[in-house]
Amino acid sequence: MPDTPRVETAVTAEIDPADAIRRMRKGAILLDVRDDDERASGMPKQALGISLLALEQDIGALVESRCAELLTICATGRRSLLARDQLLELGYSNVLSVRGGFSRWCEEGLPTEAGTMDADSAERYSRHLLLPEVGVSGQLKLGSARVAMVGAGGLGSPAALYLAAAGVGHLTLIDDDRVERSNLQRQVIHADARVGMAKTASAGITLAGLNPALQLELREERLRAGNVEALLAGHDLIIDGADNFPTRYLLDAASRNLNIPLVYGAVHRFTGQVSVFDPRRDDSPCYRCLFPEPPSAEEAPNCSEAGVLGVLPGIIGLLQCSEAIKLIIGMGRPLVGRLLCFDALNASFRELTLARDPRCPGCSRGEGRVAYEDIEGFCSTI
């Protein structure tokens, strides 16, 4: 009688999502091995999140017993198989991958739970989430940030647009001016149909259309010594989109009194400059280190007399926005102690070192509060 062929029993590597649910009810542990940004919009209910890259280093802290039944799930089922192989090599003896991943899990209507951000945010900021320097944690910092934008004109237009697009949670616009037709050459947040409207209201329409989740606070007021601290208190960051020296000196004083970083920007004809004054840092200069005293009217001709290249405030405003995002997230090297100068005619950048001045009439006064002072204006609207 011939020998009966011996049939090897294949080891099951995958199970269906419904089977995973049944096993979880009996104590199996489901590991969602997608990246943090992928889990931001949601994950299987009661799953533990641990990315494939972090599995070898962090699994021991999540699951101590090598005999525990582990289930791995990813987006479509490919990485979860790799995770299963990796766990087996680490000594976990009972590991299965969920077939079809989270996509199939959702298609079958199985229970899920909200991630760290909703589906709209996960999709809207998906390109940010792909950046390791930003990721979910950085995006959440942007979402919880409160930024004061002083001026809704040439500098404020691009800065506010990209802050809203980037996902800054709360933006306060402060400006007492109204839209004029001559503004539209450079103040791109406004529209011809809104000529005569308050700039804060006009900008609010554009920003709400760009990002409905943005919390907007519109303050149709001019900064004065009597209101500057009340308007700026409670913010994480101040962006200087002002068009005159008196306002900038008020912003500098409030920045130091309230211990809030100030992102400075200014333009003139074909040139512009950007810097960051951060009172939280002992090595940071302040605005008065750059301009100890207000210049005369002859030294600072108003913009309606001197003119300004329309695109220039856009370039400088975007650089201010870039510095703001870096400060909020805590990444990169901010322009503290550095003055970045741009020449549009030569398409060139030049960086100047800006050291803290021990004789500065502002930050050399020690730890005491800085007095607010209304001084005569020198320059009209950017």
Rank of each mutant, 00 (worst) to 15 (best):
D357E: 08
G156W: 03
F291E: 07
S80T: 14
L171Y: 06
A225M: 03
G154T: 05
A203D: 08
Y264R: 06
K141N: 10
S126I: 14
G226M: 10
R178K: 10
R365W: 04
C286K: 02
V188H: 01
L216G: 12
A300M: 12
N183A: 09
N346D: 13
F291T: 14
L184Y: 01
R219W: 04
P158Q: 00
G362A: 12
Y287S: 06
T12K: 11
G151P: 04
P2S: 07
L82V: 10
L309F: 07
P301H: 09
L53V: 06
E323T: 07
D3H: 12
T12R: 14
H128E: 01
A75I: 03
D175L: 03
H128T: 12
G42T: 12
H268M: 13
S41W: 04
L87F: 02
E14R: 12
T172F: 00
E133M: 10
L218S: 13
N211I: 02
G377M: 05
R124Y: 10
E217H: 11
T112H: 01
P358R: 04
G115V: 12
V195G: 01
V134W: 13
R333W: 00
Q185L: 09
H268R: 09
L340S: 13
E38F: 12
T172C: 04
G60C: 06
W105L: 09
G156E: 01
P158M: 07
G377Y: 03
F378P: 05
I382L: 15
Q215W: 02
L110N: 07
A54L: 13
A47T: 07
M117R: 03
G154K: 00
F349P: 06
V308A: 07
E373K: 13
A152M: 00
Q185F: 02
A148I: 14
E89I: 05
E8P: 03
R84Y: 11
A122F: 04
D282Q: 13
F102D: 03
A371W: 01
E373R: 15
V168W: 02
Y125N: 00
L173W: 00
A148V: 15
E56W: 08
N227T: 10
P2V: 06
T76K: 14
E293T: 13
I238L: 08
A148K: 06
S255D: 10
G310D: 00
G27H: 01
R181A: 06
A225Q: 12
L251D: 11
L312C: 09
G115R: 04
G167N: 08
R84C: 04
A254V: 14
D177E: 11
R224V: 09
A225V: 04
G196C: 05
G42Q: 08
S121F: 09
L53D: 13
P246A: 11
C341T: 13
I325D: 07
D343V: 15
A165E: 11
D36I: 14
V33T: 13
G234L: 09
G307A: 08
E56F: 12
P279S: 09
R6P: 00
L318S: 15
L309H: 01
A152Y: 02
L232G: 03
N257F: 12
I238P: 01
G368A: 14
I315S: 00
T271S: 14
A203R: 00
R186V: 08
A230T: 15
P17L: 09
L96P: 08
V63A: 02
S322P: 01
D252V: 04
